[in-house]
Nucleic acid binder design. Structure first.
Length: 445
RNA sequence: GCGGCCGUAGCUCAGUGGUAGAGCGCUUGGUUGUGGUCCAAGAUGCCGUGGGUUCAAUCCCCAUCGGUCGCCCCA
């Protein structure tokens, strides 16, 4: 082995998934179906650049996402240019770019603005199960000026859940809550540090009631208040029956009342269409601080098989674009985590692979002297809408057939091997072969 | 940013202090124009990288890089 034929051994870059053609074709089909569902609810598509200005991302930051931002730089940047151009970074979600887009095109858009985006997002974090550094997000949002009717929360949740239902995946459940219920409840109890309390309650499933109690009592919260919080977080319902259960805890606050009314409205809108696929779960909080009302989270119904990973979610935000425009723009948005969803199912061998190539017909090359003729046959078939490959070299028929077999090409076309011989087509599934005319042949003839 | 485990052929993995193997895959052949099976032959490895211990390291020790799982946070 000499230095010159030494290869750079390729390796997978952790967190940047890529699939084989037979799986990519499935992913593409899913993207198509999701798109169809979103459009069926009247959402229009936009695409924003992979990058935003760093300052724009930071201005609208939500949570701790800023330390996950990938910054763009030139490998050999000219020091003279330094500082002349705004620093760019890859977007970590699609909500911030959308907010910037809405602010920028404010006069040209019609409100309420309903849009979807199917694009990749980038996060510089340590990858692990179900977590990627480059991943598809299928985002839908509704944004309006000044006020956004609660009906939009229900519509958006319906559009999101319908997208999952359009895919060949195990059953999912959408869990719903309203931030105002949680914050109002905490205020009613007189708990000051709402952030700590909500964040801790959000981990209830993971660390258990004891874990939550330990953390909250260490923060100086009285045990009867902790018990009340745990009682709230334990409430589940498929309809507005949860309101009575919350009232029974004996806490009252105007914000709590507001949240209860809102969530009751949303669940009553969704229950007739989705039944038990929507679930009020007052233990769902979600991390992002900018949510102010409805929050939703989608998971597989079978939490044992798929861990308890969220495969999508979103919520209501009162003023998303305040960093970009002096207008009040409330919205509701959600994201379907396609890459996570796909990756989880792939791990479990639950994705049925598609074909390895789109080719419908392989045209056999009988011998070099008949190449022009065979190429003409291929073109005739292409013109009629078939996906056609002409075998790429003069080879034994056996090899040409084996190629078709390996690539899952369903039909092999035999042009004449001798003058005055008819064309023949072979169905590789059945093995049957019969004379055919390239100008008139149909698949199921 | 922190912790656990792991790095041997394209893939999945065995293995030994004296420089390596299997299965799958790949290439070719089993004659004249026909695949999947079967049979035969063949190619492919700085045993992640750097240092240390040793007569000798793929194996032991250290470091480093990479992978993976978890914490944090999130789709």
């Amino acid at each position: 082995m000499t230095a010159e034929n030494r290869v750079y051994k390729p390796k997978a870059i952790s967190g940047f998934p890529e699939w084989l053609p037979e799986y990519r074709v499935v992913e593409l089909a899913w993207l198509d179906r999701i798109r169809r569902v979103f459009e069926s609810y009247g959402f229009c598509n936009i695409e924003t650049p992979a990058v935003e200005e760093v300052d724009a991302l930071l201005a609208a930051k939500g949570g701790d996402t800023q330390n996950e931002i990938y910054v763009l730089e030139r490998l050999y940047a000219d020091p003279v240019d330094e500082g002349k151009e705004a620093r760019l970074a890859l977007h970590f979600d699609l909500t911030v770019p959308m907010a910037r887009y809405v602010a920028q095109n404010f006069n040209a858009l019609v409100f309420p603005f309903k849009r979807y985006q199917l694009q990749k997002s980038y996060r510089g974090e340590r990858p692990q199960k179900g977590r990627y550094r480059e991943f598809y997000q299928c985002d839908i949002d509704i944004v309006n000026v000044d006020a956004l009717p609660l009906q939009c929360d229900a519509d958006l949740a319906a559009a999101l859940l319908s997208a999952y239902k359009a895919l060949d995946i195990p059953p999912v459940v959408m869990q719903l809550n309203n931030r105002k219920i949680v914050t109002g409840f905490l205020k009613g109890l007189g708990i000051e540090d709402a952030t700590l309390a909500t964040r801790t309650l959000d981990k209830l499933d993971k660390i258990g009631a004891k874990g939550v109690t330990d953390i909250l009592s260490a923060a100086g919260i009285a045990s009867d208040k902790i018990t009340a919080c745990l009682g709230l977080a334990a409430i589940r319902a498929h309809d507005s029956a949860f309101v009575v259960q919350v009232r029974a805890l004996g806490v009252s606050h105007p914000e709590l009342d507001e949240g209860l009314d809102e969530l009751a409205f949303v669940i009553d809108q969704l229950a007739p269409q989705f039944g038990t696929q929507v679930l009020v779960n007052l233990g769902i909080i979600r991390g992002l601080d900018y949510y102010t009302g409805t929050v939703m989270e989608v998971r597989f119904a079978d939490t044992k098989t798929f861990a308890d990973l969220s495969i999508g979610g979103g919520g209501r935000y009162e003023n998303l674009a305040s960093a970009f425009i002096n207008q009040k723009l409330p919205g509701v948005g959600a994201s379907l985590g396609l890459t996570r969803l796909f990756g989880l199912l792939l791990d479990k061998n639950m994705i049925t692979p598609g074909r390895k190539c789109p080719t419908d017909i392989l045209v056999v090359l009988p011998e070099e002297a008949r190449r022009t003729e065979a190429a003409a046959t291929a073109n005739t078939l292409r013109a009629r809408g078939f996906n056609v490959e002409l075998y790429h070299r003069d080879a034994k028929i056996k090899n040409q057939l084996a190629y078709a077999e390996k690539k899952n090409i369903p039909f092999v076309w035999f042009p004449p091997f001798k003058d005055d011989q008819p064309h023949e087509v072979k169905d590789l599934t059945s093995g049957q072969q019969s004379p055919a005319d390239p100008a008139t042949w149909e698949r199921n003839s």
